[in-house]
Design a protein around this nucleic acid. Structure first.
Lengths: 239, 239
DNA sequence: GCCGATTTGTCCGTATGTATC
DNA sequence: CGATACATACGGACAAATCGG
């Protein structure tokens, strides 16, 4: 594993901001001071700072310094950035029991309609999986996953019922490097209503996602339909 | 204006990908070749490539090359990244007439509840603006904006009815550099229903946002409540 | 399986530009 | 104006992953 220096510095500074060593609206020590204390080059330090800026932890100001803009107990974007908490993470944090029920598992050939919806080439062989994921027995989301069959050999309904990602990373040594996402709100379908107990809501939050592996191949399209309660997507935008 | 070399290269490569000079799944020329053709250093070129990777245009592969992962006519995240199209942009693209109606414009002092909701310090003087924005007479979103009064001197309801950002950038020379966002789905309030013609929907898509200016001061909190139709938020996540 | 060539990833030192104070 | 601090850019060195012979 290539433990990069900038990664260490990034984590160290992030921790110091979170624990209050550098607090909201304060300035970090200057780049020169930090390069001395970390014993690294200015480029390496600046890379770590740039990552903190991408996370909206700091904001560098030309000619002035690097100001901390992170504060505790923020309602907006306090959790993990660019994403909903993963199902497992959320379950763990809330001491809830996560379960996954596989409703469908089949191989399909990508037709024109599916191709334009998912971004897979027409004619691709895909594995379609529909799953309902619950916490403490309460259904929270319906996943519609399409995997490029050639990219996920050996995928079974049993694996789909636990963690596909653990299988991909552990067994196939595949990582998701890039994923494009689109968030919309849609009227709940009969299927949504039958799986999720929507209560007063007649809509679901939908995240569509195209994921690319380390070979630059799009191997997964997912459409996750969330119960509106507890759905929250946090992100940061910079110019 | 500092025209950075890496910016030029970034735009040039981006254009060449969009027009098909480098097409989906192909590799870019090697870094060495590109540094020669652009006449720049490897660091500068790599910065441009890194920005393209942040936009999910390419995916660099260690020891192999840089693969293009952008394709035309993508349903997911083809528009502007990390954002909804701004109101003006959307209107222009659709040849629609944008209008803004200011429903409320008042100065308030930030109490404890508002402070925890918005992230402003308790006791701050804020300007609260409620606006309804329409296209061709059809209301599409309700904006609840809170500005730090000291940061937006001279803001008037008239300015709020056109473009606050043009005022901030043009008159006050202020830019938004960082903004944190949170996307949720909420039951429509009576106010939502009275302004938006929600049809069958009983929910709205809500984007909360905290914006920081170039001085690292949070000067704006907004909660924009969108009609579900035509609401779409595109983003990219990388690891 | 090994080895060398290619290609991207990380890191350094230095120089110069530009905004702020 | 000078001093400080961040921004950009260059060139070089070595590491790590990939690929072909």
């Amino acid at each position: 594993m290539p433990k990069a220096i900038y990664e260490d510095i990034y984590r160290d500074l992030k921790g110091k901001i979170q624990e209050g060593t550098y607090s909201y609206q304060e300035f970090l020590p200057t780049e020169n001071e930090l390069t001395v204390s970390y014993g690294c080059s200015r480029n390496t330090l600046r890379r770590a700072i740039s990552m903190l800026a991408d996370d909206a932890y700091v904001q560098p100001m030309h000619g002035r310094g690097v100001r901390v803009i992170w504060q505790r107990d923020q309602r907006v974007a306090q959790g993990s950035l660019d994403g909903v908490e993963s199902f497992g993470e959320y379950a763990k944090r809330n001491d809830a029991q996560p379960t996954t029920s596989v409703k469908s598992f089949e191989q399909v050939t990508c037709g024109a309609g599916l191709a334009s919806r998912t971004g897979f080439p027409e004619g691709s062989e895909l594995i379609r999986v529909v799953r309902v994921r619950s916490l403490n027995g309460v259904a929270r989301q319906v996943d519609h996953d399409y995997f490029l069959a050639s990219a996920v050999p050996g995928l079974t309904p049993e694996i789909a019922s636990t963690s596909v990602y653990r299988y991909l990373e552990g067994q196939l040594n595949m990582r998701i490097l890039t994923s494009r996402r689109r968030i919309t709100v849609q009227l709940a379908t009969d299927e949504d209503c039958s799986y999720l107990n929507l209560g007063p809501y007649n809509c679901v939050a939908v995240i569509e996602s195209q994921s690319y592996n380390s070979a630059g191949i799009m191997f997964e399209y997912t459409q996750v339909r969330h119960h509106p309660e507890e759905f929250s997507y946090n992100t940061v935008s910079r110019r």
